[in-house]
Design a protein around this nucleic acid. Sequence first.
DNA 1: ACATTGCAGATTGTTGACAATCTACATCGC
DNA 2: GCGATGTAGATTGTCAACAATCTGCAATGT
Lengths: 247, 247
Amino acid sequence: MPDPAHAPARHDAHAPEIRLVQSSSLSTLVQREIERMILAGDLPAGAKLTEANLAEQLGVSRGPVREAFRALEGSGLVRIEKNRGVFVRQISVGEADQIYELRAVLDEFVGRRLADTATPAQVRELRQIVERMEKATARNDVDAYLSANLDFHDRMVELTGNAKLLIVYRRLVNELHLFRRTTLAQGGALPVSTREHREIVDRIAAGQPAPAGRALHDHVMASRARMHKTYGNGRAAAKPSRRAPDR
Amino acid sequence: MPDPAHAPARHDAHAPEIRLVQSSSLSTLVQREIERMILAGDLPAGAKLTEANLAEQLGVSRGPVREAFRALEGSGLVRIEKNRGVFVRQISVGEADQIYELRAVLDEFVGRRLADTATPAQVRELRQIVERMEKATARNDVDAYLSANLDFHDRMVELTGNAKLLIVYRRLVNELHLFRRTTLAQGGALPVSTREHREIVDRIAAGQPAPAGRALHDHVMASRARMHKTYGNGRAAAKPSRRAPDR
DNA sequence: ACATTGCAGATTGTTGACAATCTACATCGC
DNA sequence: GCGATGTAGATTGTCAACAATCTGCAATGT
């Protein structure tokens, strides 16, 4: 057994690199990079991803790129058509509607749970994020606002302690990103949305599960309504579930 | 445009094959086959999947198998360790607990929604599945019961018309399959569970959203409780969310 | 006897080449 | 001029070979 007193600092210093090399195959790296490009908007929705191009651009062979494509298809970011290529997925209004519906259900649970379990320190942390939102709103800095908004919801889900929920939630949020660049930016809805966030934290801090859940549910549904107001015919798309699906 | 009167029958007869060849690359086929083997229990949880073995066994090269692995990792059925191999995932009690919690939330939504939207024909269909369960219970045919149980819940989610919810739900159910062969089989809980199913359908048929949702929620939580009773220390695993997760 | 080191076999990661398929354009016939 | 047909280029699907890494066992030294 090596003496830990001899060179512990070096060991600890290099541990992250070791972990990095151990965990990341080229496929994983490529996957993350493409994911970043898609979510950042570098690769617009519907764009075609050509294996050879990406491979050359990233300095790897086609194999890892293909594997990354398979993984990305699983997370819903790309669509693969055999012998035709892979494309950045396009989310229709109807699909976005379904995702919002799902998010509302999950977020309601998050609110109820946090109202029961959140510690004062956690509430304080959430309030700080809301303050970031308020400052961004005052400056009319949409990017900063969106970033804080993402952090707020992601952090809340994280605080529930349900790792599986976090995975599912993030996937949904990612897919929602594919919907034409954030419906929120339009319409000056920032002040309204910010107020909703503050109320959510208040309910959680007060330890009121049902109101906290309701506030979060309604908050998501308000985003959904904004989307329907901005695009498309609200009614038809808002209730696609009325049609009985076949087996 | 070709005249559809000339050879429509042949065209229609071969259309499925054409679709099959068009949609399915080897990767997809391999993926589905491995998924089937895992869910059927041919590949036990924790088993190591060797690329070369599977490739030879399925008569393909290693490439498609590797791609299938990436996709399967995304759906949570396998775990990939770099330079070590891929393994059928093992679900811990804690993880199963989180999945049950999530399922309860989703199923509650399903119940509420169906109580609002289900047509008489759909209710009839659900009742038929419940009858299958009752017959299986009478014969003490566990396999038939589990199959009907799966159909029941899957069909209900399908009837909500939310395709995204269906995808998420199926993924969760699949992962739950990885948990040591179905906790339900033990303990003679079949009659209890069957009664719960009948009540769920009754609430839906009566158009009572809140009770229907509650019945489904409690039904899932009862399964979760059975799991905790069968395995492990109920308390510690039942409330993993009390511990504040770090960022 | 025990731990450490080195080696051989097996397995995974990556690459480049070949075959099959698709897309777009040019050519041909009407 | 317009549509159909054929062909060339590009792109994807699959495969087999090479390099890197890991695992288990044997040899070695203390």
